[in-house]
Design a protein around this nucleic acid. Sequence first.
RNA 1: GUCCCCAUCGUCUAGAGGCCUAGGACACUGCCCUUUCAAGGCGGCGACGCGGGUUCGAAUCCCGCUGGGGAUACCA
Length: 495
Amino acid sequence: MGSRGERNGIKMTEIHGPVRVRFAPSPTGFLHLGGVRTAIYNDLLRQKMGGAFILRIEDTDKERSDEAMTRQIQAALSWIGVHWDEGPFLQSERLPLHRERAEELLAAGKAYRCFCTQEELEAQRAEMQAKGSAFQYPRTCLGLSREDIDARVAEGRPFVVRFQMPDDHIRFHDMVRGDMDFPPDALDDFVLLRSDGSPTYHMSVVVDDIDMKVTHVIRGEDHLSNTPKHIPLFLALGGEVPTFGHLPLILGPDKKRLSKRYGATSVEEFRNEGILPHALYNFMALLGWSPGDDREIMERDEMIQAFSVDRLNASAAVFDREKLLWMNTQYMLKTETAELRPHLEPFLEQAGLQDVDPDRLAAALELHRPRAKTLKELAEQVVPYFQELPGYDPAACAKFLKDPAVPELLETLRDRYTALPELTKEALEAGLRALSEEKGVKAGVLIHPTRMALSGAAGGPPLFDLVETMGKEVMERRMTRFVAFLREAAGAGQG
RNA sequence: GUCCCCAUCGUCUAGAGGCCUAGGACACUGCCCUUUCAAGGCGGCGACGCGGGUUCGAAUCCCGCUGGGGAUACCA
C-alpha cells in the first residue's frame, strides 16, 4: 500500500464538479442522531462541491408514517442548519411512477411474476436455514410458460413481481469502504411489486434516485447489502448508477446500536436540553469524520472547506454525550450573547423570565454565559436575579455558621452598600476591601457569605459583578434575610 | 445458521511500512491562575484485540482466530 490515491488501502474517490445528493428519511419517528449525521455529510459534500441537496421523505409505509413526523424532520434539519435545495418530495405521491417503471421491466423481460405463496417461501427459507445455507428465492416461477402465467392470472391468483438478478458478481466502489464485491449467490431475485401492486422500497428508491438524477448516495451501513440489489436495477432501468458511500452506525456506550435507554437520541431532545445547533452539527460531523489535523471546534465553512469523503471513517463510533456537552460549552463561550438570544428565548420563558427587566437580564446573561454548559442551564442560572431564593446551599453554608462574626460583618457591609449613591463594581469592591481591612479579616470572609446571601450558591460570577447586576434593593433584602438565617441556625445549633 | 462489514487510550480520533518512545481531544487526575464557580495554562494516567506470515523494518500489507456490528421480508 502507500501509493498515491490510496488511503488505508482504500482507493480515493474522485469527485469532480457539482453533485446531486439526497437525504431520504422515513417519517416513522423523530430525526435521530444517525439520521442527522447522514444529513450532515450529505450537506458538507453538497456545499463543498456545489450542486443540490434533495430532501425526499420515504413515507411509503403508511402504517408507520406520520405527517407530523415529516414536519418534525424538516424542522430538525432547518434547526441544525442543513438546508435542502429541492423537495421535500413525498415518495408516497410517486408510487404510480414506480409501479409504471416496474411494469416496464416486466414487459421487457427483466422482471417476472411470481405466484409462490408466503407460506411456501417461508417453508423453503426454514429448510435452507436448517441445511445451514443462505436462502435465495429458487426462481420457481422464472421458468413459467406464457400459458401458465396467463392461466394463473386469469384464475385471479395473486402474484408479486420479482427482479431477475444478473448471475454476475456485483462490484462497486464504496466511498467509505473501498471496493466491494458481492458474489451472485449472495443475492436473489427480490420483489419489486407486492401482490397488491404497490412498489417495494427497492423499486421506489432506485426510480427516485434515477428520476432525481442523484449522483452520490451517502447512507447508513444498514443499506450496504441493499446496494448490490440496487445497482443492477439502476442498470435495468437505464439509469446512471450513483456513487455510494455507507456510513457505519452510531453506537451507545455499551457498543450496541444507540437506543433510548442512554438518553436523548433525537435532535429535538438535544434542542430541548439547550444544545446549540452549531455545536451539535460540529460534534456529529466529527463522529466519523475528521479534517486530518487537530482541529475540533470548526465553523461550518471551515468544515465544508476541509470535507472529503475519503476521510469518512469505516468503523462505528460510540456517541459520547460528555464530549458533546464540552463542545456546547465551547460554543456558549464563543457565541456573543446577542447571537444566543433567539435560541435562548424558549428557555427563558420556561424559567418564567419572559417579562423581566431587559437590561438586568442582559447583564445577568452576560455574566453567566461563560459558566453554563447549555442554554437551559444558563436560563436557570439567571433565575435568582429575578425570583426569590428557594434556599441556601446547606453544605456551603456550614463554614459561615462556624464564624460568629459573620452576621455582624454582613450587616455592616449591607449598611455601607446601602449608603452608596450607586452600586458600581468599583465602589462595591472598595467598600468591601476597606471593611475587611478595618476589621482585620480577609476579604474572602466577607465575599463568600455575601455571595451566598445574594445567590444562594457557593459559586458563580465575581461578587461585585453579581451585586451590581442585582441592584441595591435586592441586595439589601437578601443580606438581611441571610443574616437572620445565620443567627437562627446558630441559635438552633447551640440550644 | 449463512452472507457482508468493522477493529489504535474508557470515549472521539491522528496514523498512507522507517518520521511512533504512537500525536490531539473528551472524561479522570495533580499543580498554576483566581474572592468562588466556570474558562484557561502546565503536567499525569491511559491504546495499536490475539496468533501467524511478508519485510532489513509492521499500528500500517496478507492469512487465521477472537470480538463487535449489519443484512438475511410482499419494512423502509
